[in-house]
């Protein structure tokens, strides 16, 4: 199963990365196992998003920058408005990084 390393930049992914870094620094973990954990996280996170999350969001805003490189879209929005069923959030600037979903199915 193909996975994206994309989600490692999320809060939970960063926490895992920090943890693994510390443990590798300590010599508690080998770098190889640490990488295996990260790969497993990629899979688990992707799967969890597919299976457990059902919510929908709409995003509007001024597109300050767009970039498509290596099948990754990057948008930088200004004065963005995020809406979902529960509430909405305003953000002065937000970055959106999106990988091609079709790559996962390959």
């Amino acid at each position: 199963m193909a996975t994206f390393e994309l989600y490692r930049r999320s809060t939970i992914g960063m926490c895992l990365t920090e943890t693994l870094d510390e443990m590798v620094q300590n010599g508690t973990l080998s770098p190889e196992i640490a990488i295996q954990v990260l790969v497993q996280f990629d899979k688990s996170m992707t799967e969890a998003l597919e299976t457990q999350v059902k919510s929908k969001v709409s995003i509007k805003g001024h597109l300050h920058t767009y970039r498509f490189c290596d099948n990754v879209w990057t948008f930088i929005l200004q004065d963005a408005l995020f809406k979902n069923e529960d509430n909405q959030e305003n953000v002065g600037r937000v970055k959106i990084v999106a990988c091609d979903s079709k790559l996962l199915s390959q």
């Binding site: 999350v53 919510s55 969001v57 709409s58 805003g61 001024h62 597109l63 948008f75 959030e89």
Partner: peptide, 14 residues
């Protein structure tokens, strides 16, 4: 806050 979504639609004005 961390927010997860299954789908999102974006409309941006460049």
């Amino acid at each position: 806050k961390d927010i997860l979504f299954n789908k999102a639609t974006g409309e941006f004005d460049f």
